[in-house]
Amino acid sequence: MGFKLLSKLLVYLTASIMAIASPLAFSVDSSGEYPTVSEIPVGEVRLYQIADGVWSHIATQSFDGAVYPSNGLIVRDGDELLLIDTAWGAKNTAALLAEIEKQIGLPVTRAVSTHFHDDRVGGVDVLRAAGVATYASPSTRRLAEVEGNEIPTHSLEGLSSSGDAVRFGPVELFYPGAAHSTDNLIVYVPSASVLYGGCAIYELSRTSAGNVADADLAEWPTSIERIQQHYPEAQFVIPGHGLPGGLDLLKHTTNVVKAHTNRSVVE
């Protein structure tokens, strides 16, 4: 069995187990497998329904001669939608809004960016022009300005110390501490036991640490421990890039980060 097929099978099995364990909360999309990078042309966006009122959005972007996937989250909030992270750029984010209108038909009224990198804030200006209120932590807003990236308009308070959590509509926002970046936030959907790890969490097929220019490698494993301790009931975990899975993604990420750190020390 090929690795790609095995990865998709694991996603399907995880979703099936969740649907059985929580039949009222989960209505997993039966329309197909989780979209992969090879299936999404740059400039297009796919939506994948995880649970009743919960979707991931998947886009792709060219970077350094390669094409990478990027995940975000959409959560229903009454007759409105909360968006977590842009679709990595203005063109993708405009396509995301169009796809949401086509498939869901509810307005996106608020959006949260989970850290300051372009795959999370690139497209904020498109959201703002569409009347979406954009939010991020003060740290993310400051770092985005320093980096020359787009800056969300509103500040999220109460997320300055490791372990801080605040309720934001249908989700809980959690600051686990520094990891992929010093400002990275985690998003949890309690009604569906869905954990969105953003770039602080890796997919299972990833074996290298990737972009760690703004990471705190020493603190990252401790931050992941905080996530595990705060959300032990999480059933569906979405990484910032690639295929979702279960809580095993947290341990896998820790292993990859520690291996990278150990290699760096040896070198």
Rank of each mutant, 00 (worst) to 15 (best):
E80G: 09
S56I: 15
V126W: 08
A51L: 05
A178M: 08
E150R: 01
A179C: 04
A133W: 08
T93W: 00
P23S: 10
P170R: 05
D216H: 07
L97K: 00
A218I: 12
V37Q: 15
A87V: 01
V28Q: 09
A136D: 03
A215I: 02
A90C: 03
P239K: 01
V237W: 02
G246D: 12
G240L: 06
E233F: 11
R46T: 08
L143K: 08
C199S: 02
S16H: 15
D64T: 11
E33R: 11
V126C: 02
T182F: 15
A66D: 13
H252T: 04
N71F: 03
R263A: 14
E157I: 10
S30L: 11
G210E: 05
V75N: 01
S161N: 12
V108P: 10
T261E: 11
G242M: 05
H57Y: 07
R226A: 08
A209I: 07
E225F: 12
S27Q: 14
G78H: 10
R46S: 09
L204H: 13
A25Y: 14
G43D: 10
D164K: 10
I224R: 01
Y231W: 04
V171D: 01
E172F: 01
S7L: 07
A234C: 02
A178W: 07
P107C: 05
E101T: 11
R110N: 15
G245I: 00
I224S: 02
V212Q: 07
T207Q: 14
Y231V: 01
T134V: 05
A111M: 09
G169Y: 06
D183T: 00
V257S: 02
G89W: 01
L204S: 12
L156P: 05
G53N: 11
L24A: 10
L96K: 00
L173R: 03
E225Y: 07
I84C: 00
V171I: 09
D118K: 09
L106W: 08
S161V: 12
A179D: 05
L249T: 04
L96N: 00
S205A: 10
V75Y: 02
V37T: 13
A95H: 15
E219T: 09
L173P: 08
P232H: 08
E44C: 06
P107G: 08
Y68F: 15
Q49P: 14
E99A: 14
G242K: 06
H180M: 00
E33G: 11
G177H: 01
L24F: 14
E267R: 12
S264W: 08
D248H: 07
V11T: 11
F116Q: 00
S38T: 10
I227C: 02
G246A: 09
A209Y: 04
R120C: 05
G72H: 02
W88H: 00
F168C: 05
A215K: 03
L250A: 04
A129L: 11
E203Q: 05
R120I: 01
S22V: 13
L159T: 03
Q235W: 08
S193C: 05
S191I: 09
L243T: 13
R141H: 07
G198Q: 06
V67R: 15
P170L: 05
K251A: 12
S208Y: 09
S22Q: 12
V171P: 00
R206V: 15
W88T: 00
A25H: 15
P176W: 00
R128L: 10
G53K: 09
L159I: 10
A66C: 06
G245W: 03
R76F: 06
W88Q: 00
D216Q: 08
S70D: 03
A218L: 14
E101S: 13
S113I: 04
A133L: 13
N71D: 04
V257N: 06
R142H: 13
A144Q: 04
T153M: 10
D118N: 11
K4E: 08
N92T: 05
V67H: 15
P35T: 08
G123H: 04
P35R: 08
L24V: 14
I104F: 06
A95T: 10
V45G: 04
F26P: 10
A178E: 07
D77I: 03
Y12V: 09
G89A: 00
L47Y: 01
L247F: 13
P69L: 15
M18F: 14
Q235E: 11
S155K: 12
V126H: 08
